[in-house]
Write a protein that binds this DNA or RNA. Structure first.
Lengths: 145, 145
DNA sequence: GGATCTGGTCGATGTCGTCGGTCATACACA
DNA sequence: TGTGTATGACCGACGACATCGACCAGATCC
């Protein structure tokens, strides 16, 4: 389904998704039309879901990053999800098993903002917040083999 | 520092980082040399940290995704961090304040694999695992304004 | 008022992507 | 075994794109 060359291409694009087809061709040992065709098929099959960019939130003043566990009050689950969705400072959110229904990542510019945003949620849910001190593992791929 | 046009460019690249300079020029209303120059400076200043790709882990058999909270046993903090780093199925990890020292994302192909990997950590730490059922908020940007 | 710095345009040039045509290989089946 | 077909690759030509140098407009500062 996805062979070694596909994995090389994915790896190369993971490092730099703006690489030209020609560069990818050299890396993979194929011609550029072949690379184009392989990318097309990887996209078509949904393996390659998109090309995106990594931004440093600090450059926009987001000095603080927190992981928030959210346990909605009885009957508030839907509303909590809507709230999280509508607060753009929540940049990731997973709905999970266990006592905490949601685990979300929150970017804020200050402690005050953290407090304000969490207060909005606290009318609907109990929250538990951990401030990110460091990120030992940055987003990476699990082994493809 | 970063003006409206920079934000338009970042937004456009967030949606599709393989857009051509020409396309970005049209979107932003500039000429393509100007866009090239702006991207160069955004990279230089560290705002644009990289161009990358989104992959569907399911295509490689990773059916399960879990959020693992990790509380190292006394004296094992360093070793736990090393372990997490060395297990590629951990695709993200933050070191945080609070009782749990680390919060990590884990991709596995099966419950057995989940069990195996967590057992390795459980010699060094207490863990608390939540299985991801759904992801209401996919990775997005906080407001730039 | 003139020097300078910044951030833009334009146009020429060379590089790159794309498309049509072709070919080799593997496989299915008569 | 031989033939038909599907797949996935290559090549070459053409059009699109990125890049570079030259130039220009506006703001800032002596």
């Amino acid at each position: 389904m996805t062979d070694d060359i596909d994995q090389i291409l994915i790896g190369a694009l993971m490092e730099d998704s703006r690489r030209s087809l020609k560069a990818l061709a050299q890396i993979s040992g194929l011609s550029s039309p072949s690379v184009a065709e392989r990318l097309r098929r990887l996209e078509e099959r949904g393996v390659l879901k998109g090309y995106t960019v990594e931004i440093d939130p600090k450059c926009f003043g987001y000095q603080l990053q927190a992981i928030v566990r959210v346990r909605p009050l009885p009957g508030q689950l839907q509303e909590v999800e809507r709230q999280i969705l509508s607060i753009p400072e929540f940049t990731e959110c997973d709905k999970v098993t266990g006592e905490d229904c949601f685990i979300a990542r929150l970017h804020v510019r200050s402690m005050e903002q953290l407090d304000t945003l969490l207060d909005r949620l606290n009318t609907l849910a109990e929250t538990n917040t951990a401030i990110v001190k460091k990120t030992p593992v940055k987003r990476r791929l699990p082994p493809m083999a």
